[in-house]
Nucleic acid binder design. Sequence first.
DNA 1: GATGGTTTTATGTATGCACATAATAATTTG
DNA 2: CAAATTATTATGTGCATACATAAAACCATC
Lengths: 233, 233
Amino acid sequence: MNTPTFRNWQSVQSEVLRRIHAREWKPGDLIPNEAALALEFGCARTTVNRALQAVAETGLLDRRRKAGTRVAQQPVAKATLDIAVIRAEIEERAQKYGYQLIARQMDVPPAAISGAMRTSATVQLLHIRALHLADDAPYALENRWINTGVATAAAKVAFDTISANEWLLQHVPYTHGEIAFSANCATKMDSEVLNCPLGSALFTIDRLTWDKDAAVTKVRILFAPGHQLRTGI
Amino acid sequence: MNTPTFRNWQSVQSEVLRRIHAREWKPGDLIPNEAALALEFGCARTTVNRALQAVAETGLLDRRRKAGTRVAQQPVAKATLDIAVIRAEIEERAQKYGYQLIARQMDVPPAAISGAMRTSATVQLLHIRALHLADDAPYALENRWINTGVATAAAKVAFDTISANEWLLQHVPYTHGEIAFSANCATKMDSEVLNCPLGSALFTIDRLTWDKDAAVTKVRILFAPGHQLRTGI
DNA sequence: GATGGTTTTATGTATGCACATAATAATTTG
DNA sequence: CAAATTATTATGTGCATACATAAAACCATC
């Protein structure tokens, strides 16, 4: 029996993945420890460690000190979605990007918004509604609230030529955020702007962005019917 | 000027993130090279490398050999979604899981299915329709095609007590897959099973799973109205 | 001044070693 | 025998070093 040598951690990783997929190591199994694998693969333990860490990040392995490394019982598929700026998303597909500002005004938001953003219920936020177009067809409807107490510079931007989606990303820092995907029926207003039948199922992204403990912006993006978000697993 | 030392790569990472968020390093900026940062941080280049690699994985840094490391112009937000087994998803929220098989039969699939799965247009696949329930309320409708030429053992499973969703994950290996999220209107059949109004917007997951170059299964899961998929960014 | 080869440089990564840390196993103690 | 203590062990990580690799910068040539 020959033991092919594995030069780099990527090749070790793919061998590990092969064994998991081929059920040589079954869900729940304890796999050999790093030192043993290093010996078998003919490389340093560091290299095996790097490979196993990478696999563990995908959720296929569970690692615990002293307890060892075992194949996950229920391999949770981790799908990594790239949420790009809408303009980039459209241009990526070689389509012509268009942008149209619908409304821009300071407004006291509904309680649901101020609640989620933890802003005072009486304070005004910058409310922006805008349409993104791909090849002149409606692509997505952006409905955004900006906390001008945090993103002060935004108060002076017209958002008539650049979308808030893009401007904020380039000018306002944030530390973390929450994102949710859902499906919603097109209201009368939605259907008119997106030029689709009333009640169409619209793929929806809700996003709330924070800078430390202060909400920066909350946005709902309704995509035109048929929109898909894809990725590999 | 004091130079605090950074003991581990995580602390280097958070310092790097701080500088990016604080706009000390602005989008597009070339940041100092690894050797310089190692000197500044009082640690080994390896440690800086590990930290920068981790940040680059989140899309906040662009790294190229020789060209150096620069802050991404348009930081693509990478949302990592955990796609768990539906039963686990429900039990996670301390709800009671229920399962109901609706139909199970060998069928020649529509061209769209056999085309996507690259199976012969005339070969029969195992077609399964089932309902998942949370606290006795309809939660998700699973519509699945299984390639019994690959997942041979599936042909003998009744799928009346365990869902294909769960059984496949535990018994059939796969190498990779594609996943897509979208919104769809409830058809008459959907609305009856999910007990929701006709035309409701349903959050939809389409998933196609491969074992090397052979399709294992293709599934569409329609979630009851109001379903959200959430994550942090 | 365009072309093509060479040098330089920043990142990518393997390795051996040392020590940290967490969790289990073994052992001592009351 | 149960509880507390200690030993053991597998992973986690830092460091110095060496070499690999990609790509930009430089330079010689026609």
